[in-house]
Design a protein around this nucleic acid. Structure first.
Lengths: 154, 154
RNA sequence: AGACACCAGUUAGU
DNA sequence: ACTAACTGGTGTCT
């Protein structure tokens, strides 16, 4: 099983401003054994910070062509704690709901992520926001590049 | 009979934390016919959220100098349903008790409120928690002001 | 079991 | 200062 390191980030300018915002995802895929490194980025309209953090992981995992052992590095507690604190298990037990607490936001994205996680051997790692880690830093750069390019293309 | 609109709110930081909490009430009294508006706020120690919601109404009604037709707007089901669903009638029939269900909490406050309600012509209105209504919003602000000021005065 | 509040905390995004 | 999202709890009633 190939070992993969995946560094992701998401951002959203104007988060919470309905209809007047834009976001982007960025990621760095590393094959630490070999000397290969792939990057990706994409911009979105009418989104949120958390959607972007989620999608950044989803799109990274979708790039894999076979089941891998993946180590994911994200600064989003929203994404990471879903697995480290097993929020996802609770939601599944309640049929993708938060039960009494109400609906689960971004349900479709969570379901898509969970399929990808189950198709691989995934370990999540929480990193600090403006990390010292150069790859998370690179993911952050990709996010801002994508947003800047998106603005220019309009 | 004068017509009054009364918007109330109550809050309690650390609700449920015995001995380590503080609360406050806030209210806006409107005389919709004239152009008069009175506000009040007060902080308390060692209280609960529901005591504050109750006291907010009590203190508002106590400001009236003559019997009035009062419309009360509160987000507290605890307070509003006591009248809209006539819980209060049941408690009075059981001598200010919940009968088999046990004691009635905040009994003294309920008795005080009921006297004030009977001394006026009161209609209760339930509003949503983080309402769009500017007067309920103002009541909420007064609550937080009172708590902030109380902290500073210590 | 339901309802409405009141909080406490965490991490991001602006 | 705001919003996005999640976890945990008490205060009270029916």
């Amino acid at each position: 099983m190939k070992i993969i390191h995946l560094y992701t980030d998401g951002g959203c300018r104007g988060n919470g401003k309905e209809g007047e915002n834009m976001g982007a995802i960025g990621g760095v895929l590393m094959y630490p054994d070999k000397n290969i490194r792939k990057e990706y980025k994409r911009a979105y309209e009418n989104t949120t910070n958390n959607k972007m953090e989620l999608l950044a992981v989803i799109e990274g995992l979708k790039m894999l062509k076979e089941p891998c052992e993946v180590h994911i590095f994200s600064d989003s507690a929203y994404v990471v704690n879903a697995y480290l604190q097993n929020w996802i298990g609770g939601w599944k037990n309640k049929n993708w709901t938060r039960g009494k607490a109400g609906e689960l936001k971004n349900k479709e994205l969570w379901m898509e992520l969970d399929e990808l996680v189950n198709a691989n051997k995934v370990t999540f790692h929480k990193v600090k926001g403006h990390a010292t880690n150069p790859y998370n830093n690179q993911a952050d750069l990709l996010v801002n590049q994508a947003m800047d390019e998106y603005i220019l293309s309009k």
